[in-house]
């Protein structure tokens, strides 16, 4: 079982890499970006049905070079393929975690390796649901998959831990509740953060920036839609994160006798919480620019990453996850 889990991990990473490359290919082959496609939605229907591309209805498609329509079909297909490969990767990902849970005979988030696998799986799940409900944001996939490949890759190569039992300190209901909530909210923050990053690129492009990265902006989804999506993901995640931190505090009270002790992990959980509270405030203040709000969201995710990697690796605290022994 443990070996199967390790093999499935490789399938997972490979799928995510392929999905990422497909999303990247979609950028390079794509016609005039998602705005154009969204505007040309009826046309797209016809393309999907296999008929000749009807691009005349699109206000953006006015002077099509003879080859452009063909290339756009490719981009569309490539984009869909990316979503399918992502789903395949997610299945392998589920398999990786499930077989590991079976091998260990317990919940599969007992160390950093397993935790990162859980967060990234939830992240992909959040992403697929988002994609299902808002197909027009598919280009966000490149950002999400990039983060996924990096995180799953780091999990497999740096954090890998052989299957083992839980240490007594982790043997608690609160452990299940706490890590479950924190992992769920982290995955929502992951996709929300990616959406904010995408918003920054797109809105930067709209504002006339053309430098590195901003050039991609042309191919990205409508800035306002992505921004709203990002807000909804954050607003959904924040109470779950708050609950997760609270559950951690209750558990800490039972385990160490204090609900809050400013251990480095607790410090960074606090920092993330405050930054996300600032995000919600900024979002609700009309005079704060949306790009500033988006930067706060990206910063929030950076603090989450800091807690996950920085604190576990650089600082030693009470948390049994800590260290890479």
């Amino acid at each position: 079982m443990a070996a199967l889990s390790d093999n499935l991990l490789i399938v997972t990473i490979m799928s995510y890499v392929v999905a990422m490359l497909l999303h990247a290919a979609e950028y390079s082959f794509g016609g005039r970006g998602v705005i154009a496609k969204a505007a040309a939605a009826p046309a797209r229907e016809l393309v999907g049905a296999g008929g000749p591309p009807v691009v005349e209805e699109s206000p953006y498609a006015a002077p099509p070079a003879p080859a452009a329509p063909r290339r756009r079909i490719n981009a569309e297909l490539i984009g869909r393929a990316a979503a399918v490969v992502t789903a395949v990767g997610a299945l392998a990902h589920v398999g990786t975690i499930a077989t590991r849970a079976l091998a260990a005979g317990r919940v599969p988030w007992g160390n950093m390796y397993e935790y990162v696998l859980a967060v990234t799986l939830l992240g992909v799940a959040v992403w697929l649901v988002t994609l299902w409900r808002n197909p027009q944001v598919r280009h966000l996939g490149l950002f999400v998959m990039l983060v996924e490949v990096l995180l799953v890759g780091v999990a497999g190569m740096v954090l890998y831990t052989p299957v083992g039992p839980l240490v007594p300190a982790l043997d608690s209901y609160w452990f299940v509740v706490h890590i479950g909530a924190v992992a769920t909210s982290s995955s929502l923050f992951l996709v929300g953060g990616a959406a904010s990053a995408m918003y920054l690129v797109r809105s930067g492009y709209d504002a006339g920036k053309r430098g590195f990265l901003y050039a991609f902006g042309a191919r990205l989804a409508n800035a306002e839609a992505v921004e709203r999506l990002s807000f909804r993901l954050h607003a959904f995640a924040f109470p779950i994160w708050t609950f997760g931190v609270t559950a951690g505090a209750i558990w800490a009270e039972a385990a160490w006798g204090r609900y809050w002790g400013w251990d480095p992990k607790e410090v960074w959980a606090f920092i993330s919480w405050v930054v996300y509270a600032a995000y919600l405030h900024a979002r609700a203040t009309p005079s704060v620019k949306r790009s500033v709000t988006a930067w706060i969201a990206v910063l929030g995710f950076v603090t989450m990453l800091m807690n996950l990697f920085g604190v576990n690796i650089f600082f030693t605290g009470l948390h049994s996850y800590g260290g890479l022994d």
Binding site: W262, D263, I271, A278, V288, T303
Partner: peptide, 27 residues
């Protein structure tokens, strides 16, 4: 004002950082 709340929230987040880098008596 909401802006001040924002600024103070940021200050609070930044002010919490040194305590995770330097060892603390309470920890």
């Amino acid at each position: 004002s909401m802006r001040t709340a924002l600024v103070l929230l940021f200050l609070l987040a930044v002010a919490a950082i040194p305590g995770s880098i330097l060892p603390q008596y309470s920890v």
